[in-house]
Design a protein around this nucleic acid. Structure first.
Length: 421
RNA sequence: GCGGGUAUAGCUCAGCAGGUAGAGCGUCAGAUUGUGGCUCUGAAUGUCGUGGGUUCGAGCCCCACUACUCGCCCCA
């Protein structure tokens, strides 16, 4: 009886060798990048207490209310995002005692129980950063700059940076009342989802894609007009600095993000080359979160970038990934003596960091040569009884077929450079 | 949670008034016995997503289910 195959869970990815090389490369480059900006890496658990996300992200957000992978009587949850865990770790490890602004970055998997589609998975990877301890618009600017430079570095230049400021909950209070009043006057034209949001989360209605609603919202009160002078000043300073830094952006007064912790600056980088999930980077300031999670009132800002989406864009833009690591030497064998000798030699060569392999299927010389060719081995050496007897063999340079005589005694110490050109 | 599309060899796909399956690529093996790349020859692999129905007969028609996929919602 043939047994049934077990398949991977919906929305997950098998990352095969070819893609692992790309991701490894991406990660290495990122680490370099973050180090240049003086960000330190942080890793947190794959799961956290569910309460962390409820309090951090907000009970009524879509992610918390219906997309969390929770288990063990809902006590724990696979992390759906990294900001809350990083702040938790920051507080738990008293990192506020570190000098200056605490700048942290991460590369990690996230989990959200959504319906998968182009550019959206249930298990996905993000990298991102959090800068904790400064309320200056300078750090906002540096972070947006960092995002754009990273994308540029990976050959993704054709993007749109959207930016907005949404103030604090207190600043939003009056505005929300006005917005509700306004929307109620147009309630007949609202979609069902917007009607539902009217009481729970009216701000999100601003983000609608319904054309009728977009038209109505054009005459709606504007949040910006209700913000404090200091918030406005922060925003204006930021925009002026971005101008000086030659960073192109679009102010989008309707840019509202889905997590409750955002205050003041929010931004999003989108690409029209992605599918309908067009955001590649999202971020913003969250000046109340540290306090919300039990710390002192400490301002912070962060962003996250979708790695699958970034990789997709890199492929689309023909980014040149490093090629697969090639085998330096393939030892073709026949006869038991040769096979034993080969294995012993491989150990010595590998110790010298020479990438090498041999046949384990007892196949013909021809087949072994074919394999060596297919895996892109630089050199091959055929060893059989006569080579063992005479202690001499021919090493073959695969790219042009040239052969060189060498002594088997010296194979372990071979200097391949001598035969490279 | 709600819509649309798709489901044939490892991969990309073809198939037809409905008559019990094909190509290319890949894999494996050979082309005067111990040497790759080009070429040629040959081989293996599919209960045509699953279950039911219509029919003498279904990969092809109908129904259900499942998976995948794209979109809504939301997000990276």
């Amino acid at each position: 009886m043939k047994k049934e195959l077990i398949k991977k869970p919906t929305g997950t990815l098998d990352i095969l060798p070819e893609d692992c090389i790309k991701r490894r490369h991406l990660e290495n480059e990122l680490i370099n990048f973050f180090n240049n900006y003086n960000y330190k890496e942080i890793r947190t658990p794959t799961f956290e207490k569910t309460e962390l996300f409820k309090r951090g992200i907000g009970d009524y957000t879509d992610v918390v209310s219906k997309e969390m992978y929770s288990f063990h009587n809902n006590e724990f949850t696979l992390k759906p995002e990294m900001t809350a865990p990083v702040i938790r770790a920051y507080l738990e490890n008293s990192m506020y005692n570190l000098p200056g602004v605490v700048k942290l970055f991460y590369i990690s998997n996230m989990y959200r129980h959504e319906r998968p589609q182009a550019g959206r998975f249930r298990e996905f990877s993000q990298f991102g950063a959090e800068a904790i301890g400064s309320s200056s618009y300078l750090i906002d600017a540096e972070m947006i700059l960092l995002c754009i430079k990273i994308l540029e570095h990976f050959g993704v230049g054709n993007v749109i940076t959207k930016i907005n400021t949404i103030g604090s909950p207190i600043e939003r209070k009056d505005y929300l009342n006005e917005l509700k009043k306004f929307l109620k006057d147009h309630i007949g034209s609202l979609t069902d989802t917007s009607k539902n949001r009217l009481e729970k989360n009216p701000l999100r209605i601003l983000d609608t894609k319904d054309e009728k609603e977009i038209e109505i919202l054009k005459s709606a009160p504007r949040l910006y007009d209700y913000l404090n002078d200091s918030t406005k000043k922060h925003f204006v300073n930021l925009l002026n600095l971005l101008d000086k830094l030659n960073i192109k952006y679009q102010v989008d007064y309707n840019l509202v993000r889905g997590f409750d912790y955002y205050t003041s600056t929010t931004f999003e980088i989108i690409s029209n080359d992605l599918g309908s999930q067009n955001a590649i980077i999202g971020g913003g300031r969250y000046d109340n979160l540290v306090e919300e999670l039990g710390g002192k009132s400490i301002p912070a800002i962060g962003f996250a970038c979708g790695i699958e989406r970034l990789l997709f864009l890199m492929e689309k833009n023909n980014y040149k990934f490093p090629s697969e690591s090639i085998v330096n030497l393939f030892i073709v064998t026949f006869g038991d003596k040769a096979k034993d000798f080969a294995l012993k030699t491989l150990i010595a060569l590998r110790k010298r960091n020479i990438k090498c392999d041999t046949d384990f299927l007892d196949r013909s010389i021809k087949s072994q040569m074919k394999e060596a060719n297919k895996i892109g081995s630089e050199f091959t050496i055929v060893i059989g009884d006569s080579e063992i007897d005479t202690n001499n063999a021919l090493i073959k340079r695969m790219k042009d077929g040239k052969e060189f005589e060498i002594s088997l005694n010296e194979l372990e110490k071979i200097n391949l450079d001598k035969f490279r050109n």
